[in-house]
Amino acid sequence: MHALKKYMASSIGKKQMMGATGISLYFYLIVHLAGNIAMLFGAERYNKYGYLLLHEMAEIIVPVEIILIFAILIHIRLAIQLTLENRAARPVAYAMKKSNQQTLHSASMMMTGSAILIFIFIHVANFRFGGAGMGGMPIVTYDGVAMKDLYGTMMRAFSQWWYTGAYVVAMMLIFSHLSHGVQSSLQSLGFNHPKYTPFVHFAGRAYAILISGGFILLAIWAYFQHGGTP
């Protein structure tokens, strides 16, 4: 345990934990996106999917949620610590500094990450915990089983142009964060290979586009379901 603690306190240990927690979070996103596709098949299908997750699959979903919460907490704590240490490492800034490899995505990880955290709070309150901040979630009954009307709540939210707009912005921030994060996590964990690294850089960007693009398309679809009117 002592050795593990020292590893976690080292610069490379911190980076590797950052990468490992990041991987768990971005893999979760593809599962989330795949599940959301159920909304295209109508209210009953989607509400039953939500019910399945929280009731019939609770033994799996709740532990996964706990793991994700820990992953987010570790990711945030390390991000703050790394940022403070990095600032301290150069107390006097250059009068002139050019960047040759750094991208807007890699330079703004802390900023996009903080904004994504705020988004997660709102998103989880809105849709995970009974429509908090949305005037609650009505109950619908299918085949005699009462369940939350997640579909209706979501459609109500996304029928508002500003809600869909803000959601699209949040997804673009996730695109930016993943654009750097996916390949960076693998590099931190030591995955760099002359044959595969160029593909990893491409695939990381493609994954970021797939995730954010997928969620954006579903949000826009939901907006137009109601003719784009509030």
């Binding site: 610069s11 980076k15 990095n86 490492a89 590099q187």
Partner: peptide, 25 residues
């Protein structure tokens, strides 16, 4: 008191001996 690597790869671009970040991995 050096900072932490965030995989910006500015080091590789600046290195006069063009040492690759593959060595960091």
């Amino acid at each position: 008191g050096f900072g932490n690597c965030r995989n910006h790869y500015e080091c590789e671009a600046a290195c006069p001996k063009e040492i690759s970040v593959a060595h960091i991995a």
